[in-house]
Amino acid sequence: MEMRIRFRLNGVVTEVDIEPHETLLNVLRDKLKVKSVKYGCGIGECGSCTVLLDGDPVVSCLVMAAKVDGSEVATPDYIAQTELGKAIVDSMLEEGAVQCGYCIPGFLVTIYAALARGIRDVDEMRKAMVGNICRCTGYVNIVRAVKKTLKRIGSQTPRNAVERPFR
């Protein structure tokens, strides 16, 4: 039984036929070919599949695709091209925050969302990133990259490229 959903993906209104048992992760990767969203644990523990749903970070492996009909979804590839996303990516590169890299898209989304909400404190940032697991770096360089991003953007709040739902 197919069903059609309509939502805004990275600013673009998107219609896609889905199976009702598919998750948002399934549809993003397999139907819409958004490969920046990663499948890690599949049970909401690792954060690799983090996307923004109506501006909030969620694990797309636990979101039913049918649920996002009428919502706004933003994925790592899109976020990486925003002003704030670029600041995060540059800091990650400079601080060597990436080793195998699998967790990085998820981290990018979470860090982006936390900064876009106005969090400017390193400990608060650490708390925000609790749901993203990295098995290579030991987090030290990731936190360093966060600190560098904080320095880069200072007190200014970059324009949040991810708008509110259009429903």
């Binding site: 039984m1 599949g42 049918a66």
Partner: peptide, 15 residues
């Protein structure tokens, strides 16, 4: 188990 997909056929209702 493969946790990528839900291995069950479902109907989905959004009342």
């Amino acid at each position: 188990f493969n946790t990528y997909r839900i291995p069950q056929q479902l109907k989905y209702f959004k009342p």
